[in-house]
Simulated assay, not measured.
Amino acid sequence: MRLLHTSDWHIGRTLHGTDLLAEQEAVLGGLASVVTAEGVDVVVVAGDVYDRAVPSADATAVLDRVVGRLLATGARVVLTPGNHDSARRLGTFSGLLSAAGLHVRAATPLLDEPVLLADEHGEVAIYGIPYLEPEVARHELGIPAARGHEAVLREAMDRVRADLFLRPGVRSVVLAHAFVGGGVASESERDICVGGVDLVPASVFDEVDYVALGHLHRPQTLSARIRYSGSPLAYSFGEAGQQKQAWLVELDAGGLGEVRAVPLPTPRPLSVLIGTLEDLLADPVHAGAEQHFVSARLTDAVRPADPMRRLQSRFPFCVHLDWTGSVAPSESGSYQERMRGRSALDVAGEFVSHVRGVPASPAERELLARALGAADRAEAAR
């Protein structure tokens, strides 16, 4: 049996306010071609199907089309909610959907009831553990004294192992959404730390043939049988240049067989460009990034005027910029102490000087004085 391990689709996510639905559908819809080419029997999604608990209508439409394409190949789809999803919403109509081949494992009390599939070597039990919020899950699992992710996940896995004990010879796969020891985080994941304890030891998942993890966006191998697939797209500029992938997992007669990476396409790469505004606009070395999502870090000594509009004239998908040029050193004392006794014009001029890195010019101070005078007159007329 062949499984395609994916996670963290985050359908509906934006990049600095820029919609990514088209890019998400391009990558996720393309998974159907991978399924067909590789003879995949089951596609698993280990949490964070959506980016928010209440997804938009456009986001749900993308999921509908993507899953429809996957099911049309003849493969089954098993998915679980992550910390970004609403388990109750995602689990709506799960009983009916299972008849079509889409298995949503979203109910915590039922996490030890597997999806049972068969091949020429016998049965494979796929357990979907939804994201377990410790304060909620400890009551759902009947362990009110438990604290932290490790305690609730250990209880969940004990239940899985107990069910497996009743199924001798059955090969097993577990989907889980957690921060497991040995994993390396990226800047685009939402913190799931509760009470300072979020790390779960890999030993929690002992006695299972394969563990398909979600939550961390970087693909990584914790052991031969415990892996993160990572997100299908880069969701922060810290992931620029990272090759996204899924894991193709083969289960043979003895359990876990070959596991190999399947690279995923990058519809629009991410680039971080550093330099003065004029250099970024003119230097031909940046031509390759003109259709990328761009984060620009401007090194001009003085903050340029209207930099985003000018950058977007060359890089239409520039979505973020920082000005990292020279900034006047901060003065000693608190801000309140430094501003005490100064006029509104002096305070406004100080702000302009701080933002631009150079003192406000006489013309700028005159413009500020006129604006402050107009504000005073409007206040007095109320």
Rank of each mutant, 00 (worst) to 15 (best):
G183R: 15
G257K: 09
L63G: 11
A381W: 06
G241T: 03
V115R: 08
V249A: 10
A106D: 14
L97N: 08
E123M: 05
G122N: 04
I143G: 02
G128W: 11
Q242F: 12
E258L: 12
G17I: 01
A99C: 13
V66D: 09
T36M: 05
R171W: 14
S98I: 15
A360D: 03
V34S: 00
S98V: 12
E366F: 06
H139Y: 13
S326F: 02
S186P: 13
E290T: 15
Q336P: 04
L70S: 09
G68V: 03
G255T: 00
H286V: 09
A26D: 10
A212S: 05
G196F: 11
Y50H: 09
P144Q: 00
R147V: 11
G254V: 01
A37Y: 01
E38C: 04
E379D: 15
I11R: 04
R227N: 06
Y235Q: 07
A99S: 03
S330P: 00
D279L: 08
V170A: 14
I126N: 02
L110S: 09
R260G: 05
T60W: 00
V184I: 14
V174C: 02
G195S: 03
R138A: 00
H121T: 14
T80G: 10
V184W: 05
V78S: 14
P130M: 03
G39C: 05
D306Q: 13
E258F: 02
W247Y: 12
G183E: 12
D322H: 11
R138G: 04
V67P: 09
L199R: 12
E250K: 08
E23M: 07
V249N: 00
D306C: 08
L256G: 08
T14F: 07
V294F: 04
G39L: 05
E364R: 11
T14P: 00
L96K: 15
P359H: 07
L164Y: 03
K244Q: 08
E187N: 12
V204A: 08
T266H: 11
I129Q: 00
M157Q: 08
G101L: 06
R310K: 12
R377A: 15
R309F: 02
P201E: 03
R370M: 01
R310G: 07
G195Q: 11
R218G: 06
A32L: 00
S186D: 04
R310I: 03
D252Q: 05
V40P: 02
A371R: 14
R227A: 01
D112S: 14
E258G: 10
L311Y: 01
L164C: 10
R76L: 13
D346N: 05
V45R: 01
G325R: 06
M308N: 05
A176W: 04
V208Y: 07
S326N: 11
A145I: 01
P359A: 03
S186Q: 12
V40D: 01
